[in-house]
Design a protein around this nucleic acid. Sequence first.
DNA 1: CGAACGGTTGACAAGGGTCAAGTTCGGTGG
DNA 2: CCACCGAACTTGACCCTTGTCAACCGTTCG
Lengths: 276, 276
Amino acid sequence: MSSLVEAAAPSLNISQRPAANSQPWQGYSLYFEILSRHSPLSITNRETLTELQQAPRRFKKGSVIKNHELNTKYVLAIQNGWACSCRVTEEGKRQIIDLYLPGDIVGLRDYHAGGRFDEVIMLTEGLVIPMHKSQLDLGMQKDHSLVNAVLATSMHQCNIMADRLNNLISHDATTRIAYFILELHARLNLARGEIQELTLPVSQQVIGDLLGMTNVHVCRCLSQLEFQGLLTRDKESRNIRILDYAALLTLAEFNTSYLYSCRVDNPRASRPLNPH
Amino acid sequence: MSSLVEAAAPSLNISQRPAANSQPWQGYSLYFEILSRHSPLSITNRETLTELQQAPRRFKKGSVIKNHELNTKYVLAIQNGWACSCRVTEEGKRQIIDLYLPGDIVGLRDYHAGGRFDEVIMLTEGLVIPMHKSQLDLGMQKDHSLVNAVLATSMHQCNIMADRLNNLISHDATTRIAYFILELHARLNLARGEIQELTLPVSQQVIGDLLGMTNVHVCRCLSQLEFQGLLTRDKESRNIRILDYAALLTLAEFNTSYLYSCRVDNPRASRPLNPH
DNA sequence: CGAACGGTTGACAAGGGTCAAGTTCGGTGG
DNA sequence: CCACCGAACTTGACCCTTGTCAACCGTTCG
């Protein structure tokens, strides 16, 4: 079972780079949007979180944005792009164990462990907004509702992982792919807008690494889903259009979409994550 | 891929049963022990947590101790025995997605979701200590160090799940079993005492459900590990004795034992979880 | 232009599932 | 005490799913 994320590209510690001179992110609080999704936060928190978050940083595909010595004191909010966390074996192979999409926070899982565990790598180019852990800690001490928001967000990530585990254990390859597509569809909050099109901006090799199968078989399974009339693909753009949503749900036994739902008064899809 | 936990046995809502008259658990705080493992807690927390925790309850194997309507307002600490959480499909099949051992806290994952997600079932007979969520919330508001402890404990569980995911994705069946045994060995904190013997108090069917394989193949893989001289089994007691710990580690690529380590000043193995 | 990468396809092999029969053991009832 | 039963484990035969290896094609990029 092979597992390769692209060889690590050069990366920078966030603290090495001071805030840029133009500050278009000022006044926009990605953290507030993310954290208030699962637990109500007052407008005061919005101001606090806006102050705490640092300048967005752009990373290239393949950049290591976090490991045992890089950004251990930061959590990172993904504003744009996909990232994954990997376990690195002694032989240097990387096994993808978690996937981060726009609107996810990276670094909660080893928040209290000094960030020792995983390496986080950009799967695409993207924008990342750092926040210093100690400042988030201070924020939580000042306002307890922030504690609940952080806890709820962490648990939400944990539930997504439980779902993936469920998917891996109980489904065969084709079904796993179908489930994965529906998971992305839900996490990207496309279900709410009844948008039936999404992009998988990664290679079939990466999809295989995520789902515990080979790139060859990913290709076969996708072809089969297409053959069955459940979806169509555009190879160039890596777009997928879901043709028969209901049939996909049935096939994948995907009935946990509620896991990914946000609070009703703060729909994720209705507001673009990138304000520029 | 079949998945069956024994048919649900009768179960009681914890609140239906007042504290017993004799109270041997008084003064003993399982929650303090668990929560202080990953983040330092003051002795004040010990008293608080001791007050908050309710009378231990004994459950039979197969009891449902938590679901969408049962104990939704409680977290449960496992003092004794094994439990698992399951996703229930529409056809009523149960898929095990998480395993709880003595010293684990049940109900953190859907803490903020009203406990809607999983059903938790005893895999063996066991003792469970409930605590009302709202009281834990109050405790966290009073003392911020408790927040860190709860967060760290949650994240620890999340990391264990990430490890299981890693195991499922990257290993074949025999290796998965080896990894699973090492995971248990580490989580039960036997590594510290260099104890090479442990008990799997569940059927091979359940092990298969946990690892995404059939009971038949679990049997074959265990036999093979025994044949290779890595361990011996006692069928009656369901005991396993590890003969070649180093070889098992190598085979399973298990190098994450640090994940399960407790704080040095509070070793889990040195103090029995059941004070009676 | 050629190299590198990602996707596709085919032939073949191996890992693991399925089914069925047999075994052991503990519990139950006569 | 023995007969019977069910649960769990074991083993063998067979077959399907998936991995492996290789060739080929289209695109992109230097």
